[in-house]
Simulated assay, not measured.
Amino acid sequence: MEFSANNPVVKLCIQGMHLEEAGNYKDALALFLQAWEEATDDAEKFTSAYYIARRQTKLVDKLKWLNTGLQLAQKINDEGVKPALPLLYTQLAQCYEELGETDNAEKYAKLAKQVPDAPSNKGPFFHGTRADLQIGDLLTAGGKSNYEADLIMNHIYFTALINGAGLAAALAKGEGEERVYIVEPTGDFENDPNVTNKKFAGNPTRSYRSLEPLKIIGEIKDWSRITAEERHKWQERLDNNQGEIIN
Rank of each mutant, 00 (worst) to 15 (best):
E97G: 14
A53Y: 01
P204Q: 02
G16R: 03
Q56C: 15
G202H: 07
H155S: 08
G136S: 04
T186I: 07
P83G: 00
G100Q: 01
P193I: 07
F158P: 08
Q34R: 13
T186K: 12
A49W: 00
K82I: 15
N197W: 03
L85Y: 12
L87S: 07
M1T: 05
S210P: 06
K233A: 14
P8I: 00
S120P: 01
Y208M: 04
D42L: 11
E44K: 00
W36Q: 13
L70V: 07
E184T: 10
A93C: 08
I52T: 06
A73F: 03
A228H: 01
K110Y: 09
L151I: 10
Q34T: 15
I245M: 04
I245G: 03
C95P: 08
V10F: 07
A170E: 11
I76F: 04
A160T: 01
K11I: 13
E101V: 10
Q235L: 12
G143W: 04
R55Q: 14
L99R: 09
K110R: 14
L12A: 08
Q56K: 13
V180K: 08
T227P: 05
L70G: 05
N146M: 09
T90H: 12
F125S: 06
A168W: 12
L12N: 06
R225A: 13
T140I: 13
R130K: 15
G243K: 14
T90V: 00
A105F: 04
T227V: 10
A35Q: 12
S48N: 03
Q56N: 03
L133H: 11
A172Q: 08
L171E: 02
K58N: 09
N203K: 09
T90S: 14
N241L: 06
G80I: 05
G218N: 05
E219N: 10
F189H: 04
E20C: 14
N241C: 13
N203V: 01
V115Y: 02
N67Q: 14
T140H: 10
A149R: 13
Q235E: 14
W234F: 15
W223Y: 15
A35P: 11
A170N: 11
C95H: 03
Y208F: 15
Y96T: 01
W36S: 11
M17L: 15
A169G: 09
N191V: 01
T47R: 09
I226M: 09
